[in-house]
């Protein structure tokens, strides 16, 4: 039996000292996870590396990746799920990290743009295709576009130009690189889905 606790403030450094956690209720299972506004320990993997962080439940996955883990390739463009710049993969599926409380990814696998290329620096074919098709300008939305494009292909949503356009519409690009992004995803989907793929 464990108490759900509630803290008083937002500063993880101070909150633990305050000792004002209030009992909220009880729960019956040992598997239940308890957290508080004081802070909670969260573990997950980021690009295959285990991560353990003490979190305020208010922190978004986006801010934790950027500010706590130094994974700044994931970008903040709106912080409200309206632009897609913060797209990452959670257990292989694309999500927006800005609307994901970081505590929610406890025990799960997060992949960011930093985890897409091989460790030796060899780019993923989609990254190559982005370069070949100049599917970017300022580059700020690009990590999100790549993460979304990878998922689009993996989901089987890259079957036609219209389908790719639709399934990449959750990633805004103000520079207007959409034609190149479409071409890069189309080309990569063909390459990866081709029966005689190289390698």
């Amino acid at each position: 039996m464990t108490a759900i606790v509630r803290g008083s403030g937002g500063n993880p450094a101070n909150a633990a000292d305050e000792g004002v956690c209030l009992a909220l209720g009880t729960m019956g299972s040992a598997e239940s996870t308890i957290a508080s506004a004081c802070r909670t320990e969260t573990t997950f993997t980021a690009n295959g590396r285990p991560v353990r962080v003490e979190l305020d439940p208010r922190e978004s996955l986006l801010d934790v990746l950027r500010e706590r883990l130094g994974l700044t390739g994931t970008k903040k463009g709106c912080d409200h799920g309206q632009c897609g710049a913060c797209t990452v993969h959670l257990n292989g599926r694309r999500i927006v990290s800005c609307l994901t409380p970081a505590v929610q990814v406890n025990g799960q696998a997060v992949t960011t743009i930093e985890g897409v290329a091989d460790a030796d620096g060899t780019l993923h074919p989609l990254q190559e295709a982005f370069i070949d098709n100049d599917a970017l300008q300022c580059g700020y939305c690009t990590p999100g576009q790549v993460m979304s494009g990878l998922a689009c292909i993996a989901e089987g949503h890259a079957g036609s130009d219209d389908e790719i356009r639709e399934y990449l519409s959750g990633n805004l690009c103000r520079c207007g690189a959409y034609a190149g992004i479409l071409a890069a995803v189309r080309e990569t989907a063909r390459r990866l889905n081709s029966p005689v793929s190289e390698g």
């Binding site: 209720g25 299972s29 239940s32 996870t33 957290a35 439940p57 208010r58 409380p101 505590v103 929610q104």
Partner: peptide, 29 residues
Amino acid sequence: MRPFSYAVPATLAEAVSALAASEPGTKIL
């Protein structure tokens, strides 16, 4: 954002009892 406490029940039954025991205004996430 205001501070809030966060609970992750492991079963539906636990979720129901956690909600029942929670203070007014508690939300399901």
